[in-house]
Each structure stands twice: as structure tokens, then as C-alpha cells.
């Protein structure tokens, strides 16, 4: 829901409700610095790391609190690959598509992930557990081909290992939901 009032208290309250106290506090700190608008990308990183993606509500809230035009916030959020505008799965599978991984068969690993999960690039499985993404280069070329699931990097991956790796995270997801 976007903000439809020009009463600043209401605007501020709505914006703060859309974010977390920690992010609101961080924005307040940024407002104190010499160039508040320059912290836009840093703020968006914080929002994404908490919510997993940048929703419309959050973008509007950031625009209001940081006092940057909403169009610019949307422009920046959509320009950078790292920012997501759609919700994603619990675990992001990042297949490295860098040169070293490519020549060592990353395409076949990616294909195996797609076959196993029935999704393609950028999609999320129906159960909301996995999202498949491609990455430019994870910077661990010596271990090519590499995939990253969540924050864990798996090196020297062969297509045969893909189901084993995925099972590990399925198990984690199941345990998480049971708890």
C-alpha cells in the first residue's frame, strides 16, 4: 500500500511501520551525514537483507524517510542486479556462471538443478524453499564449478552431486518448519 497523505506524522508512521526499528535508526544516522542521499544503496542492502527482497511498501518508506524521490529509489533498485523486487525462496541457489565455472561445466550443473526442481532462472519452487539464480562470479574460481546455496559455497560440483546438496537443504527447511 502506498502512502496517500501529506500529513508528515502519518507519513512517517506509515513508513516506519513498513520497515524495522533498526533500519529506521540507520536511515536517521544517514540523514545526519553530509550526503544523506548517497547512502541509498546501503539502506536498500539493509532492507533486502532483512526482508529478502525490496517490496513496493519498503521502497516508498525508504524514499520518504531518506527524503529521496520515489522514482529515484525505484530506479536504483531496478538498476542493480543484486536487488530483488520479488520475494524469493528460503534458500537461494546461486550457480556461478563465471568464465572458469563455465568452461568446467557450470551449465550442466545448472541444468541438473533445473531438472531436479522444475524451475528455471529467477524462479522459485512452489513450496517456497528454493530460488535459482545465476551469479557473475563468486570469486572462488579455483574450485570451479561452484554453486552457493544460502551463504554456503559448494565447490567442484558435478551434476551427480546436485540432488545430494539439495536434499541437505530440504532437510534443513523441514526441520526449520517443524520447529
Amino acid at each position: 500500500m502506498s502512502i496517500r497523505t501529506d500529513n508528515w506524522e502519518q507519513v512517517q508512521a506509515t513508513a516506519e511501520a513498513a520497515l524495522t526499528p533498526a533500519i529506521v535508526e540507520y536511515i536517521a544516522q544517514c540523514r545526519q551525514s553530509c550526503e544523506p542521499a548517497s547512502h541509498l544503496i546501503g539502506v536498500l542492502h539493509k532492507v533486502q537483507s532483512h526482508f529478502g527482497y525490496l517490496g513496493r511498501e519498503q521502497l516508498d518508506a525508504v524514499a520518504q524517510l531518506l527524503q529521496v524521490p520515489a522514482a529515484k529509489v525505484a530506479g536504483v533498485a531496478s538498476f542493480y542486479h543484486f536487488f530483488r523486487l520479488q520475494p524469493r525462496g528460503q534458500f537461494i541457489i546461486n550457480v556461478c556462471l563465471g568464465t572458469a565455472c563455465y568452461v568446467k561445466g557450470a551449465d550442466r550443473v545448472a541444468q541438473k538443478v533445473m531438472d531436479e526442481l522444475g524451475i528455471t532462472w529467477g524462479e522459485t519452487t512452489k513450496d517456497g524453499i528454493f530460488t535459482l539464480e545465476g551469479s557473475r562470479c563468486l570469486g572462488t574460481c579455483g574450485l570451479a564449478p561452484v554453486i552457493m546455496v544460502g551463504n554456503e559455497v559448494h565447490g567442484n560440483v558435478t551434476p551427480d552431486q546436485v540432488p545430494v546438496i539439495l536434499d541437505k537443504y530440504l532437510e534443513k527447511a523441514r526441520k526449520g518448519s517443524a520447529a
Binding site: S38, G42, K72, V76, F79, F82, F83
Partner: peptide
């Protein structure tokens, strides 16, 4: 420290400057 956000073009000097300023790179 200022963070990038996954845009290769930000390695270019003037794009990088725009990115630090909080703009599109």
C-alpha cells in the same frame, strides 16, 4: 565503506562515482 550492488559497469570510474553518490551506476 560503500557497497556495490552487482553492476559490472560500476568498475568504470564515473559509474562508480555515481554509485557512491547513491545513483544508478
Amino acid at each position: 565503506i560503500r557497497l556495490g550492488a552487482g553492476a559490472f559497469v560500476c568498475g568504470e570510474e564515473t559509474a562508480l562515482i555515481h554509485s557512491i553518490e547513491g545513483e544508478r551506476g
